[in-house]
Every structure is written in structure tokens, then in C-alpha cells.
Amino acid sequence: MAEQSTFARALSHPSFRVGLLGSFIFILLALISVVWTPYATDIVDIPNRFGSFSASNWLGTDYLGRDQFSLLMVGIASSLKVALLAVAIGALVGVPLGLMAAAQRGWLEAIILRFNDFIFAFPAIISAIIITTLFGPSAINAMVAIGIFNIPVFARVARGGALSLWTLEYVDAAKLSGLTSAQISLRHILPNVASLLIVQATIQLSLGVLAEAGLSYIGLGTQPPDTSLGLMLKEAQSFFFGFPMQAIIPGLAIVLFVISFNLLGDGLRDTLDPKLTRVSTL
């Protein structure tokens, strides 16, 4: 089945379209922020602090007089970076583990499964606490902590998808053709679980944005003078009762960001998983 037609089918899915548009806007803002922001985000301008919405500062200014919209762009970029790299860590380690477990079965699979269950007992925040205790807080810590928790997620999805494929007859045909299990995993299994993995990646990406916000909010993630959506909320908290907009804007950005990715993932899943789209099969 050509990728083109899958994408075309996905495009006819309303939530996929909304999600694609939203994700596109957020990713675009993040990319632009790397080369340009309306104002520099490292210039303190105390007289203009807590400015409200205006033509020059669309979303007002923060407690140091920095332009909120510029901060938001940079914050989106750093949140996205953390979430993306955490997904990369999870997928790069988890997917091979899951494929190996499905290909070998036996003791290797048992060990991988135990390991999976074990990692599930360490939510990102606990890994982040341990890492921070040892090395001090930073955005990289958050990324690694979230990434570790992503490993068993991807391993589980890859293994689950692969297990059902290994019983299929085309895999037997490949074995008869003398292909090794590693070759079969790469040629026949991975491409057929790719759609499941892509859907999971969008889900983990949105969870990663949420987790990064939480970690930065309690001081275990991104540190000043850098900024991220979670850190903006942390900084806004002290002034929250006086200037609630300081916290409402970055919070709304997180919500819209996460909704966009989730809608994208839902749309992809509905298009890629024929089981959920079937109307009535007889």
C-alpha cells in the first residue's frame, strides 16, 4: 500500500487535519525562533515589566520586561527539543529491544520483559530526581529521564506488533529463503510495525512536552537563563495572583501544543489501524 494513499486518507480525517495544522504552526514557531524572535530574550527591561497586550508586545512582557511572545517561541523550541530527543532515546533503544524480544523469544525475551516492567516503576520524575541529585538540574537531565521512561513504551509496542507478524506465513517463507532473524526483522517486521511506532511516537511526543513542563516547573529541567514552557510557568507563579496572564499564556500554549500532537496521533491511528475503522465485518 503506497504511503501516498495513506497520507491522502489521513487528510480526509478532520482531527488529523486540525492536528497537522496545529503541530505545523508550533514546529514552525520553534524553527523560526532559532534564527529570529521579535525581541531578544536575554535583555532585561525592568521599567516595562508586566506589560499587557500591545501592538509592540503582542502578548505583553514578563517580570523582567522581556517580550512574552518571543519567550514563548523560544520556550516552545526548547520544550519540543527535549520531547523529541526523549522520543529518539526511547525509540532507538526500545524498538531494537522489542524486535529482538519478538525474534528470539526464550530467555532473552524474558529478560527484556522484566527490564520493561522494572523501568515502568521509575516514572520520569524519579529518574530526574536521581539524576539531578548526582549531576545538578539541567534540560539534558529532563530529556534523559523522560527518554528512559520511553524505552519500555517503544519496546512494548514494537514487540506486541512484531509477535503477531512472526506467526505469519510470509515470515516462514523468508526463513525458507535463508534469511536470518535480524534480516527478517529489518525487511519484514520493522516496516510493518512502523505505523504503530509512528502513532506511539506522536503520543510520547505530547507526553514528553507535558513531562518537560512538569520537571522544569519543579526545577528539575530547563534552567534560567534558558527558557521553556514549564520554566515560564515556574517563574510566573510568584506573581500569579497579581498577574495571572503571566501563567495563563504559557499554560494555554502547552495545552494547544499537546492537543495538536494528540489529534495528529489519533488521526494517524484511525487511518493506519483498519481494526478501528471497520464498520461492520462479516
Binding site: 500500500m1 506465513e169 510470509y170 516462514d172 525458507l176 510493518n192
Partner: peptide, 17 residues
């Protein structure tokens, strides 16, 4: 010198190839 033909004509071929 040996090959096999399977029962299920739908499972015999990788849908992506």
C-alpha cells in the same frame, strides 16, 4: 532443493513489498 506453499494466500506475502 526444497520449498513450501502455505495455506493462507493472504498471509503468504508481505503487504509492504
Amino acid at each position: 532443493e526444497l520449498s513450501m506453499v502455505f495455506q493462507d494466500p493472504f498471509g503468504s506475502f508481505d503487504p509492504r513489498l
